[in-house]
């Protein structure tokens, strides 16, 4: 049986994650309503990705479409989760430099500063050493983790700045592996969901 991985599909770089996951041979779906997340027998998904985009807009749309609480619940209950860029901001307990009224799911014990590396002219492709191996990824108006709780493992740094964290089944990245086609964090997500031996052929 193949895994079913959802990508939060309200706004942002959704299709990039979908394509990368499909290349890894798993089934995918866009998560836009509570019924995409929950069926009669509970959680429909084996894992979920919170993509990049504009975090303040995603937060607003999560609340508008009544997805905020169900999403918070399934992640708190242990659904393996990967958040990239805006997705990391959504996961964080505390958000610095928020848009007015901006909230976050608060399921990851970390403080994240929005847009911590400057404006778009500072956006860059960066080679990083991470706990999951060497990667080349894109930082696009990227956030940074400025503080983590005792249960949170730091898995990537850019210079001194913390840019990747893991806590239980949740991984939060300040950068975009999907923009450069880097698959190892998605493979790790699948392993977390119990589909670790999947080959590219699926």
């Amino acid at each position: 049986m193949s895994a079913l991985v959802g990508v939060l599909g309200l706004q942002g770089g959704v299709s990039e994650h979908i394509e990368l996951l499909q290349d890894l041979g798993v089934n995918t779906c866009w998560v836009r309503t509570p019924s995409d997340l929950l069926g009669a027998d509970g959680v429909r998904l084996d894992a979920i990705v919170l993509p990049g985009g504009e975090s303040s807009v995603m937060d607003r749309l999560l609340r508008t479409f009544e997805l905020f609480e169900p999403l918070k619940q399934v992640i708190s209950d242990g659904l393996p989760t990967l958040g990239t860029c805006a997705g990391l901001i959504l996961l964080a307990r505390t958000v610095l430099d928020p848009a007015p009224g901006q909230r976050s799911l608060g399921v990851l014990d970390a403080t994240v500063r929005r847009n911590a590396f400057g404006s778009q002219v500072d956006s860059a492709e960066v080679g990083l050493e991470t706990a999951d191996g060497p990667v080349k990824v894109a930082f696009i108006r990227a956030p940074q983790v400025v503080e983590v709780g005792p249960e949170v493992e730091v898995i990537a740094r850019r210079g001194e700045a913390i840019v990747g964290v893991r806590s239980g089944a949740i991984t939060g990245l300040a950068f975009h592996p999907e923009v450069t086609g880097e698959p190892r964090f998605h493979q790790r997500l699948l392993a977390e969901a119990g589909f670790g031996r999947l080959s590219n052929a699926g």
Binding site: G12, V14, G53, A124, L128, V179, T180
Partner: peptide, 22 residues
């Protein structure tokens, strides 16, 4: 650690992050 600004991926990437938006 290599760092390259202004690449095609980061230029097109920001537009990807605006998708579905106004």
């Amino acid at each position: 650690m290599t760092t390259q600004t202004g690449t095609r991926a980061v230029k097109r990437g920001l537009a990807d992050m605006l998708k579905g938006g106004v």
